[in-house]
Simulated scan of single mutants.
Amino acid sequence: MTEPTLVHIVDDVPELEGLDRLPMVLVLDGFLDAGNAAARAAQHLVDLGESRVVATFDVDQLHDYRARRPPMSFVRDHYANYDPPRLVVRLVRDTGGTAYLLLHGPEPDIRWEAFARAVRTVVQRFGVTTVVSMGSVPMAVPHTRPIAITHHANNAELLTGESPWRGELRIPSSAQALLELRLGEWGHDAMGFVAHIPHYLAQLDYPAASISLLEHLEIAARLTVDLSGLRAEAEDREAEITRYLSANEDVADVVAALERQYDAFERAEDGGNSLLATDQPLPTGDELGAEFEQFLAGLDGPDEED
């Protein structure tokens, strides 16, 4: 029995003919996107200029609508403006006119292996030379320190930075991570970057992390990206956080404790000790969550003075 087609690819894309290299950027919304950092970075790439869809995935075969219900409008007495989830590959050009592909949309809820095979079809059809993914995870780190990035790749020669981790970590999987693994098994290069987002900002847009991800993307994919718009957003968010901390001493104290912990780990790393030393454990998300409920409420509150 023939497997149902998961991806529909445009037959004629003359812009991609004769290219000696073609990177494809990968961002799947959902699990691996604390602070909306990767999704905002992907949207920034789309907003920078013209793009066109060259491949479309059949979302009906991949999406759990009851778990992630798409938005729609109810206008007085009727339903309207349904926004269906879209998982597409776009042909985009960077600031210097270099062509690249951008695969973005919601992470598939099911059929990850079939999705990986469908992406392989896209890679082979268009002659993609490297897949570069972006993601972000919440961590017990302060926003006042440089954003840490975990580098990963299915080919060690692709790595552009040193990993902060030692040994093996057992983590929840994602479609994005599985895809990198499978592409390596099929002989296709794939790499990526994961930004470490302050836990207390994980539910808010954090454009500073989007900037960091795109800066690493520029190096890895040899692209040029105009980041001026995102830098303005990041400055506004930073000012908002600073105002809130100055008015909430208890929350500021917790941030200061994170700063001390971060600096202690930095000193330990410089001294050759493991980041995951057993005598200096990272606090869990649950341990930090309670302290920052007020923080989130303060940043999103309807009354700025309150």
Rank of each mutant, 00 (worst) to 15 (best):
P4E: 03
T5R: 05
V7F: 04
I9N: 04
V10R: 11
D12V: 10
A37H: 07
Q43C: 11
L48F: 01
S51I: 01
A55D: 01
D60H: 13
P70N: 02
V75P: 04
N81W: 04
Y82H: 05
R86D: 02
R86E: 07
R86G: 02
L91P: 04
V92H: 00
G105L: 05
G105K: 05
R111F: 11
R111D: 10
W112M: 06
E113D: 13
T130I: 14
I147D: 03
T150F: 12
H151L: 11
G161P: 05
P164K: 06
I171V: 13
S174V: 00
A177D: 00
H188M: 02
G192R: 00
F193P: 00
A195D: 00
A195L: 05
H196Y: 03
H199N: 07
A202I: 01
L204P: 00
Y206I: 06
A208I: 02
H216Q: 12
A232Y: 10
A234Y: 12
A239S: 15
A239I: 06
S246T: 12
D250S: 13
D250W: 08
D253A: 13
A264E: 15
A268V: 02
S274G: 04
A277G: 14
Q280D: 14
E287D: 14
F292H: 12
L296Q: 08
D300E: 13
D303R: 10
